[in-house]
Simulated assay, not measured.
Amino acid sequence: MTGLRALFLLVPLCVAAQSSAAPQRQQPRPEIFTDLLQCRTITVDAERLACFDRQVGAMDAAAQRDEVVVLDKGELNKTRKTLFGFSFPKLPFLGGGDDSKEEAQAEEGVTHIQAVIASVRSLGYGKWQIGLEDGAQWITTEAMTARDPKVGQPIELKRAAMGSFMGKVDGGRAVRMKRIS
């Protein structure tokens, strides 16, 4: 009985120690960006300005060569919506990469999208390939029995259990769907 009591005391202590000792990991910044930030430490005004000019020029040149991309939060959310339905490894610039609660929530980011159907193609047996206005292609993995989807109708796609997706065309019954491109 004392061993079991010791186990009950040990588990909360381990959890508390792990949560308080876990450092907040931040993704490493690109060297070109850290070099720019280092310019702030220069105390002589003319040297600091020269450093900023040099580093901003280097950053601009890297952006021109597509070696550095700067996204604001709005562009990041737009990118997440465009990629909705694909499974990727945890990518830090899309909000993944760490297993902390905040990171897990950021990784999920977009849980559903609403779009307009741009193309439809029957696959037989009540299944459909549905193209959205943004170019995304989805297929139903189960039959749509109520009515056939049509170009111009609204569609809502939501994350479902275990990495699957559900789609509702024009407020109809939800069916399982899969993104193909």
Rank of each mutant, 00 (worst) to 15 (best):
T2P: 04
A6M: 10
A6T: 07
L7N: 06
L7V: 04
F8N: 13
F8E: 08
L9W: 02
V11S: 06
P12S: 03
C14K: 09
C14D: 03
V15L: 15
V15P: 01
V15T: 11
A21V: 01
A22Q: 09
R25V: 04
Q27R: 09
Q27N: 11
Q27C: 05
P30N: 06
P30M: 14
R40E: 05
T41Q: 14
V44L: 15
R48L: 11
A50F: 10
F52G: 04
R54W: 05
G57A: 13
G57H: 02
D60M: 15
A61C: 06
A61N: 10
E67G: 03
E67P: 03
V68D: 06
D72N: 15
D72K: 02
K73C: 09
K73N: 10
K73F: 08
E75I: 04
L76K: 02
L76G: 01
N77D: 10
T79P: 00
R80W: 00
T82H: 13
F84I: 07
G85Q: 11
K90H: 05
K90I: 00
P92H: 12
P92M: 06
L94H: 00
L94K: 01
G95L: 00
G96F: 00
G97L: 02
D99L: 14
S100R: 06
S100Q: 03
K101G: 01
K101W: 09
E103F: 08
A104Q: 14
E107R: 14
I113S: 03
Q114V: 08
A115Y: 05
I117W: 00
V120C: 00
S122T: 02
L123E: 02
G124I: 02
Y125I: 04
Y125L: 13
G126F: 01
K127Y: 03
K127G: 02
K127R: 15
I130G: 03
I130N: 04
E133Y: 04
W138F: 11
W138L: 12
W138C: 05
T140V: 03
T140F: 05
E142L: 08
A143G: 11
M144K: 07
A146Q: 09
A146R: 13
R147A: 15
D148K: 12
P149G: 00
Q153E: 14
P154Q: 12
I155A: 10
I155Q: 05
E156R: 13
E156G: 03
R159E: 06
A160K: 06
G163L: 12
F165W: 15
G167H: 01
K168Q: 12
K168Y: 07
V169K: 08
G172A: 15
R173A: 06
R176H: 10
M177D: 05
R179L: 12
S181T: 03
